[in-house]
Write a protein that binds this DNA or RNA. Structure first.
Lengths: 331, 331
DNA sequence: CTGAAAGCGCTAACAC
DNA sequence: GTGTTAGCGCTTTCAG
């Protein structure tokens, strides 16, 4: 690989001049420029980004840390975010280093350490679920950080969220407007922000419509297919006529229960699930869901990050994106 | 951020010693080591990877270039691969730089250029569809490359593929064994390796069972939901009793046609699709599919890459992973 | 308008 | 057992 020195020699100028031609950082005579361009072309030169990064303390790289669990359908959600991020980043000449915390706090800490050594210019992170993160000890303060999807506990920072409360409330409103008042709510483990907010939306909708809250209609468990199946069964036996399922894995389990047991949807049981995928068009029946704007979230995160990188520096910023209700045949 | 020099000063040793302690590259007395460790801890030192990379020409980073199209379900396939890659990489202390060619040759070329400047130690690439790539002009030869999913045209290199021919053949065999002999084949545009290989598998199965090949049972079109729907309709009207759909997007379209028009599956029409996702458990009916080992593919790609990085250097290596037939209710 | 040269933080001869 | 020092390839002052 040719270096800037080779180019300088070939063009009979100094490395400084070559550098300035490349970066447009000071005036260079047209004739000189041409010589430099010719030399670069001849040598098939392209700048060494590592050297540039070392010297200028800029890497044009941002990190993304997502909490993926092996074989979990919700991964698609984060992957859509990653896709949005990558796209906006590329438009701005940035690169993406992708990493995975496996939904594990220790691993997250490790990965942040790795990022700290890497001259990244910013980090987008979907924090792992769990109580306290003590991020202030973990970030080295040399790059801005944007949180996505989940509000970090005990830490102030730029955050891009989707409105879980509103999304759920909209969905439950629809159920109520169709005449349901016994509405089951299936959720993954409570105590994590997204689940809690969705439950909140459910409650708000009930209150707004003067429907008494029935604790036994709330079913909580690990976010698995089996558990979704199981909890749907329990709720069916308790006589609910509609189901709201607060995550996609349990949604599949719940639908599976209804199918297996010949429960007519939406007549005997209406159902609205979470997260939108093309497959839901051909599920039986086509599933109504709350759609989260994943791609848009990635985009918003990068935009916020770039603002910070370019010096905009006022206090923590929170963006809340609306969820969208997609009504199909299941309610 | 503390530098190695700061540590050296604090520990009252030379930077060389600190470096050797960190990297274990030569003997250092226990006492000295302790002093160094203490100093590192005190200063919260962590090595600057950019400087290390510049000096040692090692970055512990590999690139991944995938051809994602916005909003395409097949993205999930590549994202699963990415997930597999990231995991194995991390186990080996490597980082992943993710990039997207948008299934566009020019963009792919650009992204390779970006990688060329970046001291990556290896590249995993799912080449864009299309005739000629002239990769020999694009790679700078400073890092090994592993191709995945698609065989690069006109280029020799390590390649990890899934056996599209065998996967399809297995599926069509099942259809034939159930008594079908009018089997429709819906595919995305032919001329790209994966599609062609799947068609090949279809043909081989027919030949093996002495069933005449009927050209009008092969329906080709852009890989969209609508087209899948449309082509399923055409085939239904031509009297086929079974359908093999060679990609997941068109599979959804085809299923949608059958559902919408009340065609009983599998009685009036058996169907086997491509790619396995959890949602297929709750499609109506649960869909039988050819499953591609995406995660395993990512894993295999990294393993091959690491072999190259660590000096194994015999001619181009091709790994062909088996597809797996997942039989559910649709055939 | 351009060049010389310092130095980013590290590794690895070479020297003792 | 350890220290000295020359760079890796760039950017950027300072000088002219």
């Amino acid at each position: 690989m040719a270096s800037i020195k080779d180019v300088a020699t070939k063009a009979e100028v100094s490395t400084a001049t070559v550098s300035h031609v490349i970066n447009g950082t000071r005036y260079v005579a047209d004739k000189t420029k041409e010589k430099v361009y010719a030399a670069m072309k001849d040598l098939d030169y392209s700048p060494n980004m590592v050297a540039r990064s070392l010297r200028s303390r800029k890497s044009n790289t941002i990190g993304l840390l997502v909490p993926l669990l092996a074989e979990d359908t919700s991964n698609f959600f984060f992957m859509s975010i990653a896709n949005g991020i990558e796209q906006v980043l590329k438009e701005n000449g940035y690169n993406l280093v992708l990493s995975n915390s496996n939904e594990n706090a220790a691993m997250e800490k490790d990965q942040i350490k790795v990022f700290n050594r890497q001259h990244i210019e910013g980090l987008v992170i979907a924090p792992v679920n769990g109580k306290e993160h003590k991020y202030e000890d973990q970030f080295n303060g040399e790059y801005p950080v944007v949180f996505i999807d989940r509000r970090p506990q005990g830490y102030e920072g730029d955050t891009i969220l989707v409105n879980n409360c509103q999304g759920t409330k909209d969905a439950v409103n629809v159920l109520i407007n169709k005449g349901h008042d016994k509405i089951g709510f299936i959720t993954g483990t409570l105590g994590i922000t997204t689940s809690d907010e969705r439950l909140e939306g459910y409650k708000e909708s009930l209150i707004q419509h003067h429907i008494a809250f029935n604790k036994s209609y709330i079913k909580e468990g690990p976010a698995t297919f089996q558990e979704g199946y199981q909890l749907a069964e329990e709720l069916y036996n308790e006589g609910v006529t509609a189901l709201f399922v607060a995550n996609n894995v349990m949604t599949m389990g719940a639908v599976s229960y209804l199918q297996t047991n010949g429960v007519k949807v939406p007549d005997q049981m209406a159902i609205i699930g979470y997260d939108d995928y093309d497959w839901m068009k051909i599920s039986s029946p086509p599933l109504s869901v709350v759609r989260q704007p994943a791609f848009e979230m990635g985009k918003a995160a990068v935009e916020q990050l770039l603002k910070r990188i370019h010096g905009d520096t006022e206090g923590a910023n929170e963006v809340m994106l609306d969820s969208e209700l997609v009504i199909r045949g299941s309610c």
